[in-house]
Design a binder for these strands. Sequence first.
DNA 1: CTCCTTTTTTCGAGCATCAAAATAATTGCT
DNA 2: AGCAATTATTTTGATGCTCGAAAAAAGGAG
Lengths: 413, 413
Amino acid sequence: MARVGSDTDTIRRQNRGLALDVLRRSGPLARTSLAAETGLSHATITAIAADFVGQGILKDLDEPQSDQKSRGRPAVRLGHNRDVAYALLFELDVNRSSCSLIDYGGTMVDRIEAPLGPHTFDKIRPAVFLAEQAQRIRVRNPREAPRIVNISASVQGILNRAGTGLTWSPISGLAGQALGDVIGIASDLPLRLYKRGRLLAEGTRLLYPQLHDANVATVYVGSTVAMGMSFHGRNVGLSEDAATEFGHMVHIPDGALCRCGTRGCIEAYAADYGVLRAAYSVPDTAPPAPAVPYRQYVELIQSARRGERNAVHAFKMAGSAIGFGINRLMTVFDLSYIVIVGSGAEALPLMRDEIESSIAASLVGRVHGVPRILTHGDESEPIFRGLCAKALSEIDQSLFAPMPSTGQRPETA
Amino acid sequence: MARVGSDTDTIRRQNRGLALDVLRRSGPLARTSLAAETGLSHATITAIAADFVGQGILKDLDEPQSDQKSRGRPAVRLGHNRDVAYALLFELDVNRSSCSLIDYGGTMVDRIEAPLGPHTFDKIRPAVFLAEQAQRIRVRNPREAPRIVNISASVQGILNRAGTGLTWSPISGLAGQALGDVIGIASDLPLRLYKRGRLLAEGTRLLYPQLHDANVATVYVGSTVAMGMSFHGRNVGLSEDAATEFGHMVHIPDGALCRCGTRGCIEAYAADYGVLRAAYSVPDTAPPAPAVPYRQYVELIQSARRGERNAVHAFKMAGSAIGFGINRLMTVFDLSYIVIVGSGAEALPLMRDEIESSIAASLVGRVHGVPRILTHGDESEPIFRGLCAKALSEIDQSLFAPMPSTGQRPETA
DNA sequence: CTCCTTTTTTCGAGCATCAAAATAATTGCT
DNA sequence: AGCAATTATTTTGATGCTCGAAAAAAGGAG
């Protein structure tokens, strides 16, 4: 059994982590405010701040805040020391990839983008591809390169249990590959993989304060269907355990054919290709289109809005698939918000009734009520924000491990 | 935001809680072993033990352990002081109720049972009913009565968000009633409600060591269908948030009529009444039988085993409903074990193929593999064990709040 | 009766926090 | 210019918990 006991060290980490965390989301804060936000005493904050400033992690920002002058001693705000560390963030999608360099404060310094196609990874191993991107960034930013301390990636698919690669992915050529080899080139850092759906949830929550402490399911609807959930501000399903493969939940056994090869997935009804297939009365066992041009999807939404019957019906099917999916989750999680993110957000008015009635059509829906539905069209910002948040908090965490508290007290004047 | 910082008090609670927790599941332990199990130092364990013994919570068990005599100083085992506190445990089912008195060590001292019918709570308010039961126990056990410090109940249905009552319940007359009124009679203790399904999961995990750190879904199949999950030994969906209404997950929209009034719930296919209805080719929109005699269900299993086609088919439908339900959950939780508990455990051989193939028929099933399926026929033991565990650990927890560490050190001899 | 072995307790740090008091840095008033 | 008022930060001293090491306890073995 041998569980771990707490000691003075545990509590030091805890509180330092807390301080850094609060600083992350509130932005620079005076020591006094930081004490108030964290609930720690001023004395403690002084000590913690001294440590961090000593290590160069935080620094005093003494910009003359021209705001309004207040009475007493002016507050000097404490902020992250932007250039003490950098992170490399990859975003891998079905048709494009990007590699961004961000500083410790979360500001983007540089970014490289590249298109991805179904055959990209036939020619070059994914790990090599990533390593090359990383190398280009490093060459272009020689000053920052040596201070890169974290490499994280947003990916689509199912992570293996160790989190080092993908067991399945809609991005062709990615599954089964060892991705950690970026190591070879970019020093000996591990590559940390995060599911796109989960980052989306995290990022969206950061964007809307009202979601901070709520129980939220964030659903991406577009070229695929994905989802992440958070409860009282905590991501659900810790690390390797949860696989929010919402899009591939079976909606109707032996139903429409999905890109994953299964029949009846939610995605096969609600992703762009599913709606399109239904709208054009293509048999739903026909192989899904490999990619749907954005314009075509938008036009479909337009025509449904004009009342074109087939299009309207197709979106109703989509709404029903999403609604029953949420409904089924609600037997386990009591959700209060649903956020629809991605190009499908446009289509919410066409799906809303079906979503709500599907949820209401069950015991849990009747008892708990239908969650409030919000939309956020753009998905790239939340994903990036989510990835930043993960990478930076990972760095923050890693800073507590070795810190041997110097304990030098300055003499009294 | 104002999250809480840790301090020396936090760590004291943490470690004391840990010690008590370990002692709960390992049984009495020598201080040395306790130190090893908790990872705390001997010195700390001595201090903690001294505090608890001083408070009368723990005591030295000096029974002559006739085991094998070892060399050095004999270990003196530390155990719970059974009679320092008592708990009252209610179990409310559709057709019977019980009220048990257990001591702080978890041993049952007394129990009252009573039948429940569909009209029981027309005549008497549930809170009054509970209070009367409690009163009878208290009168019968005058010595223990004043030391009852916890009242907990196992219930079926959906808890309100405050956890003080039920918003819905299959037990007629229970939903919407304030249950906390037991207070009036049994001093001013709150009544703590726990979902039967979750207790079942907790109790089953305690019964099978291999499940301790695994990801498990425990499914009750019998007169209803219920479920609880645990991950690495932690219950999923903390307190008020999760509502494991697995039985009422919609399997097939507009499908078979369920007791809850919804159509298509898993329960409508997999609970005894659902299987029976299907086996006798009663239209599945016919109102469910209010109660199925145990014998009748067993006979149905027998006849399916003999190969009677309608019965076989009915159980296959049940297996499919359960399998797809699990499948759908597995889009969020990566399960490694499924335990079927209750009278339906007998029918596992009739359902197993369908359960497994339904799970395998999806992306997650293919990637993660089908969980191992176990059975445990009797459901009452795990439920009781689970309820005991909850009540006792609740008591343990409450003991840290007021403890102002006396700090009296005995003089050296 | 003395040595050995194993369990517990005692002792003397080490450290992180906290409350309260002291110190700093400004603004506002006279 | 000088002093009072005000707000931010640091210093001080105390408290409380844990830990490692050493000491004490309690039997068994020879």
